[in-house]
Simulated scan of single mutants.
Amino acid sequence: MQENWTDVCSVDDIEQGGVIRFDHAGKTYAVYRSADDRYYATDGLCTHERVHLADGLVMGDEIECPKHMGRFSYVTGRIKGPPVCVNLTTHPVKVEGGRVYIGCPLELDKMKVE
């Protein structure tokens, strides 16, 4: 599987220590800006009850789910607090020309040779 770099937003569209929701190709992502101006991306739905993480609370390098307060590291995707028990998938991020891009999975069509 390859990555397709997808333009998410301007760097200024996410406040320091904040998170935004980004929907693309039928999938929801959460895109974060840390207090030290680094950008990160994870799947956008909590692995516990599929609630939008962008509605949650960012604390340091963690995102807290708004439904049951489970916590994840948005840097690594690892669980930081119950009730969640499945890590988040993280996605690569790059910043170019004042724009934030995430590496969305790109499924390649398989050609059938007869």
Rank of each mutant, 00 (worst) to 15 (best):
M1G: 13
M1V: 12
M1F: 08
M1A: 12
Q2W: 02
E3I: 09
E3F: 13
W5F: 11
W5V: 06
W5M: 08
W5S: 07
T6M: 14
T6Q: 14
D7N: 15
S10C: 13
D12R: 15
D13V: 15
I14Y: 08
I14S: 08
Q16P: 14
G17M: 06
G18M: 10
G18E: 12
R21L: 01
R21M: 09
R21H: 07
D23Q: 14
D23G: 13
H24V: 05
H24K: 11
H24R: 10
A25G: 12
K27M: 14
K27T: 13
K27R: 15
Y32L: 07
Y32E: 00
R33D: 12
S34N: 14
A35R: 14
A35Y: 13
D36Q: 11
Y39F: 15
Y39Q: 07
A41Q: 07
A41M: 13
T42H: 00
D43G: 14
D43I: 09
G44R: 07
G44K: 08
L45Q: 12
C46R: 05
C46L: 13
T47A: 10
H48A: 10
R50I: 07
V51P: 07
L53T: 10
D55G: 10
D55E: 13
V58E: 02
V58D: 06
V58Q: 05
M59K: 13
G60S: 02
D61M: 00
D61P: 02
I63P: 03
E64Y: 05
E64M: 11
C65H: 11
C65K: 12
C65V: 01
C65E: 13
C65Q: 11
H68R: 12
M69Y: 05
G70I: 01
R71W: 03
R71T: 02
F72I: 03
F72E: 02
S73L: 00
S73K: 02
Y74F: 06
V75S: 00
T76F: 03
G77E: 09
G77A: 06
I79T: 09
I79H: 04
K80R: 08
G81C: 04
P82R: 05
P82E: 00
P82C: 01
P82M: 00
P83E: 07
P83V: 02
P83H: 05
P83W: 03
V84H: 01
V84S: 01
C85Q: 06
C85I: 00
V86T: 11
N87I: 12
L88A: 03
T89R: 11
T90A: 09
H91Y: 14
H91D: 04
V93F: 01
K94R: 07
G97L: 04
G98T: 05
G98N: 06
R99V: 13
Y101V: 06
Y101C: 04
I102R: 06
I102T: 08
C104L: 06
L106C: 04
E107T: 04
E107V: 09
L108C: 00
D109E: 09
K110L: 05
K112E: 03
K112C: 11
K112M: 08
E114S: 11
